[in-house]
Design a protein around this nucleic acid. Sequence first.
DNA 1: AGGTTATTGCACCAAGTGGTTCAGTGAACT
DNA 2: AGTTCACTGAACCACTTGGTGCAATAACCT
Lengths: 115, 115
Amino acid sequence: MVNHMVQHEVLDRTFAAIADATRRQILVRLGQGPASIGELAEPFGMSLTGMKKHVHVLENAGLVVTEKVGRARQCRLGTERLEDAMSWIRFYQRLWERRLDGLDAYFTLNKETEQ
Amino acid sequence: MVNHMVQHEVLDRTFAAIADATRRQILVRLGQGPASIGELAEPFGMSLTGMKKHVHVLENAGLVVTEKVGRARQCRLGTERLEDAMSWIRFYQRLWERRLDGLDAYFTLNKETEQ
DNA sequence: AGGTTATTGCACCAAGTGGTTCAGTGAACT
DNA sequence: AGTTCACTGAACCACTTGGTGCAATAACCT
């Protein structure tokens, strides 16, 4: 599902997936080891169906991988997708730092001399 | 607007803001210097109203700062908000790396020996 | 003053999100 | 076989999102 997607789609899904506090907590929880849908849902007091949807979003973003084992679904952290998010943010930060070093430096300067 | 928000709200808004390809391009454009709503809208063939909304989302996330100068609104990159996003991703990555170093290391190993 | 320009607010629309409940389905236990 | 358990799919709901067009406003130009 994550394959054959162009870069901006990957970023869209990745950032959208981690733009939700519940889903970020799910990732943190899975950082401590695999869990089932039910185990993930319990601490949130959320319905299984609701949690299933969150996991699905994370899975579509490649951040989580799931596998049906017996009657339960085991969820664990995905393998690499967050690298893309990180590298885009780094790219943007370079733009941002360059802006500070560039023409707008006078702005910061003015601000300083004002006080 | 960005003040007096708890951390998870900041992250929600920041990640949601950059989860859209159009808005990421806006940030890149603003990395080359300030622009008006109209200048931002033009390359996308988008209505001014539409662009205004995107800018508003970015502004709410603290990623962009705007100021009315004459009849135009000058938009430029915000000052620091992306740091929060970056540091959360770093935090998550530590979890992820720990997972790799832990019990699941055998998994990576198997993958390598398969080929 | 009068005309042009740039943005803005409002109303609208289709599609997506985050949640629910309820009725299956398939695996595990007795 | 029958029961229980964990998940799943479908339908629903209120709210948000990413767009649009149009009318109003405010600034600038002549």
